[in-house]
Design a protein around this nucleic acid. Structure first.
Length: 615
DNA sequence: GTAGGGTTAG
C-alpha cells in the first residue's frame, strides 16, 4: 500500500500539474487520471482538485465539475481546498456549498483549516450575520482557541467594521504574538481609530516590516498621507527591511499628495534595490505618475510592464482621461479588450470619463450600454453621474435632464451636481435652480451646490439672488469646505489652507502675490469676484479672492521653483478667477503650471489651459 | 499535501 501511495504521489501527472497553464493541458492530465482509474485515490484527488482550483480563478468551475461528477467520496483536504479557493474568488458564498458537504458526510467533520478558510470567506462577503454564524459554528466545533482562526476572526470583524468584536477575539488570545497584534493594529486603523492603532504599534514588543507596513497603510487609508510618508522615513531609519509593499504604500501617499519628486525618488529606490516589480507596484507607479501630471512617464511604465491586470489597465485609461487625453484613453480601452482583459465597473468609470472629456457622446452611450449587454455589469450611480456630465459638457442639457429622469434608480446628488456644473458652464439659470432644489432635497447642507448656483446668479449680475442664497446658507448652517492646496518643493510638501498665514515664508509669499497682481493688472486683469459670496466691498472681495489657496501655492512655487513647472494639488474645483490668473501667470512669468483639482488636470502654458475652459 | 498580520484602479 505504502509503495503504491508513493508511486501515485510521484505520479508524473502531479508534477506536470504545477506547470500547467492552459485548460487543454489540464484536461489531458484529467483524462489520464480517469483512464488509469486513479482519480478517486484520496491523496491524488486532493492534489488534483486543489491544484486546479487554486491555480487560476477561472479553473474553479472545472474543479467544481470534477468534484460533482467524478468524486463520490471527497476528502476533507479536497473540500477544504475548494472552500479556500472560493474564499479568494469573486463568488465567495459558494464556499458554503462545500462546508455543507463536509457536514453532510458522516465520515467527515470540519477542522481548523475548514474554519480558517470559511472565516476568510465571511470577510470577503461583508455580511455580518453570516460572519457571526460561522463564529458560533467554530466555537461549537471547538476551534475558538486556535491562533490561526483567531487572527482570521480579527481580520473578518475588521472587514465588517466591528471593532468591539475584534477586541473580544483578541482578548481571548492567550499569548498575543506579532501576527495577532498586527491584525489588531490593522483592525483599529481600518475601523477609523488611527491614534489607537499607533498606540498599539508603539507598544508592540517587536515590530517587523509587516507591522510597519500595516501602520503606514493605516495612515494612508485615513487620508493622512504626510504621516504615512513620515512613518516610512522612520521605518528606514529603524533599519527595517523595505519591500515592494512598503513602496506601493509610499507611492500611494505620493499620489494623494501630488508629490511627484518623492514619487520619482520612490521609483528610483525600487530600481536601485531591485525590488520585485509586481503588478501592484507597477500599477501604483502608473497611478502616481498619471495623477502627479506626468502622463508620459505613466505610459512608459505601463508599456514596460509584462503582466497587467484590470487595475493596471483601468489606472492607465483613467490617467489618460484625467489628463484630458480622451481619445488615447479610448484607444487603450480597445487594446485592453484585444488583450483579453475583462473590464469591470471601475474600468467603465475611466472609459466614460474619457468620452466625457472630449465630448464623444455617442461613443459614451455605446460603452454605457455595453456594460450590461456585453459584460453583465449593472451601471452604478457613478456611471449615471458620468453620463449626465457627458451630456452636460456637450451642452446637451435637456438630454441630460431626460437621462436623469429615466434612471432606473433614484438619481443621487452626483447626478444633479453634474447637471448643475453643466448649467454653470452653459449659463442655464432655470435648470440650475431645479438641480439645486433636487440636491438640497437630498442633502440640505451641500456647500458646493449653493456656491455653484450663486456663481450662476453672479454671472447674470443678479446680486440680490446671490445675497438671498447666502442668507439661506447661513440660516441652514451650510459651511463652505475650506480650500487647501499642496505644493512640493525639494521633496518637501507644503500645505496651504485658505486664510491661513502660518507658513514660515508667508510674508515673502504675500509680497510675491502683490507683485503678481501688479503685473496682471498691467496686462488687463480684472478680478472675477463672483465666487466670493460674502457681503463685502469689491476691493475686499478681490483681496479674499487673492488669498485662495491655489494662488498662494502658485506664488510660493514662483518664489522657490525657478524654471521648473509648478505643480499644485487642490481639494476643490479650481475657481474661475484662479483659473484665469493661472493662465496669465503662465504667460507673464513664462512658466508651466499644472494644477490638479478635484476632477481633473489643468496644464497652463503660455496663457492657455489644456482644459480649454471646460471643467 | 492545506492555514494567521501589510499592497494597486473609482
Amino acid at each position: 500500500m505504502k509503495s503504491s501511495l508513493t508511486t501515485i504521489a510521484k505520479h508524473p501527472s502531479i508534477s506536470l500539474l504545477k506547470s500547467c497553464t492552459t485548460m487543454k493541458e489540464l484536461k489531458q492530465i484529467h483524462a489520464q487520471l480517469v483512464v488509469k482509474g486513479i482519480l478517486n485515490h484520496p491523496h491524488l484527488q486532493g492534489q488534483f482538485v486543489a491544484t486546479i482550483a487554486l491555480h487560476n480563478p477561472t479553473n474553479l468551475n472545472y474543479a467544481n465539475q470534477i468534484l460533482h461528477h467524478q468524486c463520490h467520496h471527497p476528502t476533507l483536504f479536497t473540500l477544504n481546498s475548494m472552500i479556500r479557493a472560493y474564499s479568494k474568488s469573486t463568488t465567495p458564498h459558494k464556499s458554503f456549498h462545500f462546508y455543507s458537504k463536509i457536514l453532510h458526510f458522516n465520515n467527515l467533520s470540519p477542522d481548523h483549516y475548514t474554519f480558517n478558510f470559511l472565516v476568510r470567506t465571511c470577510a470577503q462577503l461583508h455580511v455580518h450575520v453570516t460572519g457571526v454564524s460561522v463564529h458560533c459554528a467554530l466555537i461549537k466545533h471547538g476551534f475558538e482557541h486556535d491562533p490561526h482562526v483567531q487572527t482570521g476572526l480579527i481580520f473578518m470583524y475588521a472587514e465588517l467594521g466591528c471593532l468591539n468584536s475584534c477586541h473580544g477575539v483578541f482578548e481571548g488570545v492567550v499569548e498575543p504574538d506579532l501576527v495577532s497584534r498586527t491584525a489588531m493594529l490593522h483592525a483599529y486603523a481600518k475601523c477609523g481609530d488611527i491614534e489607537f492603532a499607533r498606540k498599539m504599534f508603539d507598544e508592540m514588543p517587536q515590530r517587523d516590516f509587516i507591522a510597519w507596513n500595516a501602520m503606514i497603510t493605516g495612515y494612508a487609508q485615513c487620508g493622512r498621507s504626510r504621516d504615512a510618508l513620515s512613518m516610512f522615513h522612520l521605518m528606514q531609519m529603524a533599519g527595517v527591511k523595505i519591500n515592494e509593499v512598503s513602496m506601493v504604500l509610499v507611492l500611494t501617499a505620493c499620489t494623494h499628495l501630488g508629490a511627484l519628486d518623492q514619487g520619482r525618488w520612490a521609483h528610483a529606490y525600487v530600481e536601485r534595490y531591485k525590488l520585485r516589480m509586481t503588478v501592484t507596484l507597477g500599477t501604483a507607479l502608473i497611478d502616481m505618475y498619471a495623477k502627479c501630471g506626468s502622463i508620459d512617464k505613466a505610459m512608459e511604465v505601463f508599456w514596460g510592464m509584462k503582466e497587467k491586470n484590470v487595475y493596471t489597465w483601468s489606472s492607465a485609461i483613467g490617467g489618460l482621461a484625467m489628463n484630458g487625453l480622451g481619445e488615447e484613453s479610448l484607444d487603450l480601452f480597445n487594446s485592453m479588450k484585444q488583450d483579453g482583459v475583462k473590464p469591470n465597473e471601475v474600468t467603465f468609470i475611466s472609459v466614460l470619463k474619457g468620452c466625457s472629456v472630449v465630448g464623444l457622446v455617442e461613443e459614451g452611450r455605446k460603452h454605457f450600454h455595453s456594460m450590461r449587454t456585453l459584460y453583465g455589469i449593472d451601471p452604478q450611480l457613478e456611471h449615471y453621474g458620468l453620463m449626465v456630465d457627458m451630456y452636460g459638457r456637450a451642452a446637451r442639457l435637456e438630454e441630460a435632464l431626460i437621462f436623469i429622469n429615466s434612471m432606473p434608480i433614484k438619481p443621487h446628488v452626483g447626478a444633479w451636481s453634474a447637471l448643475l456644473h453643466a448649467c454653470r458652464m452653459h449659463k442655464n439659470k432655470e435648470l440650475g435652480e431645479l438641480a439645486l432644489e433636487k440636491i438640497v432635497e437630498l442633502e440640505d447642507k451641500n456647500d458646493g451646490a449653493y456656491v455653484l448656483l450663486s456663481n450662476i446668479y453672479a454671472d447674470y449680475m443678479n446680486w440680490e439672488k446671490v445675497s438671498s442664497l447666502r442668507q439661506t446658507m447661513k440660516a441652514k448652517g451650510v459651511k463652505k469646505l475650506p480650500g487647501c492646496s499642496v505644493i512640493e518643493v525639494d521633496g518637501e510638501v507644503h500645505e496651504f489652507f485658505v486664510g491661513d498665514k502660518s507658513h514660515p515664508r508667508y510674508d515673502e509669499i504675500e509680497l510675491k502675490l502683490e507683485e503678481i497682481f501688479r503685473c496682471l493688472r498691467l496686462s488687463g486683469y480684472v478680478a472675477n469676484t463672483s465666487p466670493v459670496l460674502f457681503d463685502i466691498e469689491e476691493e475686499e472681495k478681490e483681496d479674499a479672492l487673492g488669498k485662495h489657496s491655489e494662488k498662494v501655492a502658485v506664488a510660493f512655487g514662483l518664489i522657490t521653483l525657478k524654471g521648473v513647472p509648478i505643480r499644485v494639488v487642490m481639494n476643490l474645483r479650481i475657481c474661475w478667477d484662479c483659473h484665469n490668473v493661472a493662465k496669465m501667470i503662465s504667460k507673464i512669468y513664462d512658466t508651466e503650471i499644472i494644477i490638479r483639482d478635484r476632477s481633473r488636470f489643468h496644464h497652463f502654458k503660455k496663457g492657455d489651459c489644456s482644459c480649454k475652459g471646460y471643467w
